[in-house]
Simulated assay, not measured.
Amino acid sequence: MLSLGIDIGGTKIASGLVDAAGAVHEARSHLVEGPAETAFHQVLDLARSHLASYPIQHIGVVLPGGVDPKTRVVASAPHLGWTDMPLAQRLGAELNRGVHVENDANAAAWAEHRFGAGRGGDSTALITIGTGIGGGLVVDNRLLVGRHGLGGQLGHIPRVTGGHPCACGADGCWEQYASGSALRAEARRRNWRPGPITGEEVLSAAVHGDPAAVRLIEWVSGHLAHGLTTIAAFLDPGEVVLGGGLGSDKRFVEYVRAALDAFHPSPSRGPVTVVGAELGIHSGVIGAADLAATVGGSAPR
């Protein structure tokens, strides 16, 4: 039986039919065309087009935003203009099927745990390294979402007392020291070179032997490794999976592993196992579909 996964991103809506092995079929992608109600009807039309061609029992939808773990109401999705949006209920009523709604990072963590780099284990931590730090946590084969659906907001773990200000309103958050934007900001502070800077450029320069770039990558991977040891201490995951624009680069993963070697693991736990994400751009669709099939959607009203 195929399940439908829909991933609502900042600029596009991706969808696909996912089988029991996590393989994606009939993948589609459309640009997000307008404000709140327009986006809803895009998702609805996309779901209907899949349903017209295939017998689909389960439907999952994921998006970057807070989702109430009990009601599946989207508490906030600023890029869509949604506040307290009963997305699962509205889609379920229109499609006459249960719909499961989840945060996209949680869904990606679930997908990697089930079918990607964390498959076969009991617990997986996904850390996405991009503009900020995102991710999700699976503990004992259960997605950890927390009381308000905000579990796994790893980028806002306190890292440096009185450190760099964060957009969340706090100072010294982990993502201010171990993300792609943190790397770019530090490169500017150190006057690495004039003009716009990308994390990929710094990493590439480091790989090719630029001493200043090497120091920058070692700086960001060191902060990342420090946070990973904290996560390992209280979760003891089977694997820490790195994803996102910077984190999924195999060259960066090697720097992180080297930084972790500098820490002394607990003799009883052993070293932190860090691997790169495997599912790429399909992780949200796969996670959405499989969560719908595994957890079940909200009953249509």
Rank of each mutant, 00 (worst) to 15 (best):
G155F: 10
H282I: 00
E112W: 09
S298I: 13
G209Y: 09
P165C: 08
I281G: 09
E239L: 02
S3T: 00
V160I: 15
P300W: 02
F263S: 02
H208R: 14
F263P: 00
A292K: 04
N191A: 15
G132T: 13
P35W: 00
S29L: 14
L279V: 03
G149P: 07
D45N: 15
A258P: 00
A20D: 11
A259N: 06
L150S: 14
I286L: 08
R159G: 00
V32I: 15
T273H: 14
I127D: 01
H264D: 12
T229E: 09
W192D: 09
A109Y: 03
L224K: 07
L144G: 06
A47L: 03
R190C: 08
S283F: 01
S76N: 13
G199M: 10
F234M: 10
P158I: 10
R189M: 05
H25E: 14
R184F: 01
S248Q: 15
A21R: 14
A233W: 02
P78Q: 07
A125T: 11
N96P: 00
V67D: 05
V62F: 05
H30Y: 07
T273W: 01
L46V: 10
S181K: 13
A206Q: 11
V101T: 02
P158R: 11
W192T: 14
L246K: 12
A88F: 03
A20P: 00
D236S: 14
A14I: 00
T131H: 10
S266V: 08
G209A: 13
G238F: 09
V18W: 03
W219L: 13
G287H: 04
R188I: 10
D171R: 14
I59M: 05
I286T: 04
A14M: 07
G149C: 12
L63R: 02
V202F: 06
G276F: 03
P55A: 14
A293F: 02
A52G: 15
S29F: 02
C168Q: 11
P165T: 12
P165N: 06
L228N: 02
G296F: 03
A206N: 11
G169E: 09
S29C: 15
G92E: 03
L80M: 07
G9C: 07
G244L: 05
V61Y: 03
H30T: 03
G245T: 07
R193S: 08
H282L: 11
W82V: 08
L95K: 02
G151N: 09
A299Q: 10
A75I: 12
T131E: 11
V160R: 13
V207Q: 15
